[in-house]
Design a protein around this nucleic acid. Structure first.
Lengths: 226, 226
DNA sequence: TCAAAAGTGTTAGCATTACACCCATGC
DNA sequence: GCATGGGTGTAATGCTAACACTTTTGA
C-alpha cells in the first residue's frame, strides 16, 4: 500500500484530528446495556465516555474501532456486528481542537462479555442503556443516535439475531426485542410475526430448563452446518 | 476559536486526508436529476464525479460541502436541505493515498438551478439520477447510497417538500414522489394518504394554467407568514 | 401434583390497493 | 364546446393489536 503520511494535499486542506467512537450494546439480565469507559486521561479525566480514540494512518475506520475496543476494554468484537453511524463534527466538541469523530454501532452476541479498563481508561462497564449518566464530549448524543439506529435496524433488518448465540429460542429473541424497545410485547403476536416472515429456521433440538423445553431456531439462509 | 493546526495528537494518530462529497438532487422535466461535475484535474482527469473536495481546518463538514458546491458548480444551496450520509473509507478509494470522504445528500427546491463548471472542474450538469454514467473514485456507490437514503426520507420524513417551492399543488407533490421512486402512483390513493396525515395545510389560492386550477398547499406547522 | 415456562387462534380495527368518472377552467 | 388537467369514493385484502388457556417438562 502507498505510504500515507506523504499524501500531498492542496494547500489549505485539512489537518483535522480524526477519531472513532463506538456505542457497543449487549443484553444483560434482560436489559439493554451499553459499554462505557471511565477516562484516565485529560480531557474529561474521570468522566464516563464511549470507547474510542484517534484513527491511525494505515487503518480503516472499522479497524480503528476494533482496536480501540480491544485496547480500552479488553473486549474482542470477533465476528460481532459493527456498522458506521455518522461523523460528528461540531466545532468545539473536543477541547483539544478540531477533532471529527466517526461514530459506530456494535452489537455483542450472547450476553455481557467481560470487560476491564485498559489504555487511558480506568474502568470499563456495561451500563443500562436506557438511563445514561453524563458522558464526556458529545457522547450522549452519539449514544442516543446509536440507540435510535439500533431500534430501526431491529424492525427493519434482522439485527436482533446479533445479540444472541447461533441458535436461540423464541422467548430469548422476544426478550431481545423487549430490552431494545424497552417495552413488553405480546407473545402470540410476536411469534406470528417472526415465524410468518421466514427469517427463522427451526432446529430439531430443544432447550431445557425449568418449565417446558423451548424449540431452538437459527437465522434462515445459513448452510446447515459449517 | 482555538488554532487548529497546532492540535496535538498522540504520536501515531491520523494524518488522513478528509474530504466531503455531495450528491445533490433536483427534479427537472419530471425526472430525478443528480448534479455531476467533469473533473479538470488529476486524478480521474476528465471523468464525471460528484462535486466535493478537501475539508479545511476551520470549517465544518457542512460548510465544506456548501463551499465545494459553490466553487465547483456555481450553485448556492441557500436554505436547501443538506444532510450527512456517512464516511466512505475504503483504503484505495483515492489513488493519492488515504483519503476519507464524508458523503452528503442535498435536495434542491424548485427545479434545476443553473450550474456551470468552476474550480478544478470543466463542466457541471444535471444528469438523470436513474441512469448514471461511470463515476470517478467510489462516487457511484455514494450516489446509490444517497438515492437510497432519499427514498427512505421521502416516505418517512417529509423530504419531498424540499424539492418544491414554499407552496405547491398535490399533482406537483405527486410528481416528486414519482420521480424519486421512479414509478407511477395512484392519484386517489396518493391524495388520501397525504391529506390523511396532516402534513399539508391548504391555502386559499389556486394555481391556474391549462385545465382546472389546482389547490395550493404548504407544509403544515409553519407560521402563517414570516 | 405442582411450579414454571412454552406454545397456540380468533376477532376487530386500520391501512393499502385497485379501479373510472365528473369538474372547473382557458381557448 | 372541447381540450386539459384537477378532483373525488368504494370495496377487497392484508396487517396489527388485543386477549386467556393448554401443554410439557423437572422437581
Amino acid at each position: 500500500m502507498r505510504a500515507v503520511d506523504v499524501l500531498t494535499l492542496p494547500g489549505r486542506a485539512v489537518r483535522v484530528g480524526l477519531a472513532v467512537d463506538v456505542a457497543a450494546f449487549a443484553i444483560g439480565s434482560g436489559r439493554l446495556k451499553i459499554l462505557l469507559v471511565r477516562r484516565g486521561v485529560a480531557p474529561h479525566f474521570d468522566a464516563w465516555a464511549l470507547p474510542g480514540g484517534f484513527v491511525r494512518a494505515e487503518e480503516t475506520l472499522e479497524q480503528a474501532a476494533l482496536r480501540e475496543l480491544r485496547s480500552e476494554t479488553a473486549m474482542d468484537l470477533g465476528s460481532s456486528h459493527l456498522e458506521q453511524l455518522r461523523a460528528f463534527d461540531d466545532p468545539g466538541r473536543d477541547p483539544r481542537g478540531r477533532v471529527i469523530s466517526v461514530a459506530h454501532l456494535a452489537v455483542l452476541a450472547g450476553g455481557l462479555p467481560a470487560v476491564h479498563g485498559g489504555d487511558a481508561v480506568t474502568q470499563a462497564i456495561w451500563h443500562d442503556a436506557h438511563a445514561l449518566p453524563p458522558l464526556a464530549f458529545d457522547h450522549l448524543r452519539i449514544a442516543e443516535h446509536a440507540l435510535h439506529r439500533l431500534r430501526i435496524r431491529l424492525e427493519y433488518a434482522q439485527l436482533a439475531f446479533e445479540f444472541l448465540p447461533p441458535s436461540f429460542t423464541l422467548p430469548e429473541l422476544q426478550a431481545v426485542y423487549e430490552a431494545v424497545l424497552n417495552r413488553p410485547l405480546d407473545k402470540r403476536n410476536f411469534r406470528k410475526r417472526l415465524l410468518g416472515q421466514s427469517f427463522l429456521e427451526p432446529l430439531a433440538e430443544r432447550r431445557s430448563g425449568p418449565g417446558r423445553p423451548a424449540r431452538l431456531y437459527r437465522p434462515a439462509g445459513q448452510p446447515p452446518d459449517l
